[in-house]
Amino acid sequence: MAHRPFTDEKSLWHAFQLGSELALTQLMDQFIGPMTYYGRKLSHNDDLIQDCIQETFIDIWQYRANLRVVQEIRPYLLTCLRRKIGQAILKEKFLPLEEMDAGAHFELDFNVEQSLVRDEEEAQRIFELNRYINGLSRKRKEIIYLKYYQNLSNQEIALVMGIQYQTASNLLHEALNSLRELIPSKSILSLLFLWTTVLHQ
């Protein structure tokens, strides 16, 4: 791990806007991980994701002095990346209109490592749980991912997905409701509890 001289996000962003290359380097070191994980949900093409991340950083460096005040860095970078990947996918193929928004799919891979599962029965139950979650619509999966796996607020989710705050809140509500209908009550409550209390990185 590289040395991270800036200890809080505000100092980091402040130094970055003043043109500190060390701040830029730390930004990349810190956020390439979450950006890549998010990128992989939007596209299977690793090279494309890498290019888009690079371009995101080059862009924000170029416009650094004119960038607005960023309260939280992570949702801001995810927003830029989502837009970049959307543009890149559009360039590559023609998509039907309703799917043009940041690529056609959103995939959460809950694949369970065999070594962790004790028996057939347990594997079956985990498989079911995964199937429920992956059975959600693309947008619902994305909002669950941003909420519980990138730990964004509803406001930030709205920003990243380019939708209204109210739309984001409704969408999240719908996503959780449909899970509630699908999954036996006890499990879903615990799952929600797990999502809201444990940070997944």
Partner: peptide, 24 residues
């Protein structure tokens, strides 16, 4: 529940991060 709610992420190598930093 813990196993089921984990997203299986391919790990990110430090070479990958380094190469993005270097290129940028």
């Amino acid at each position: 529940l813990i196993i089921a709610s984990r997203i299986c992420e391919r790990p990110i190598s430090s070479e990958y991060t380094q190469s993005i930093i270097r290129n940028t």
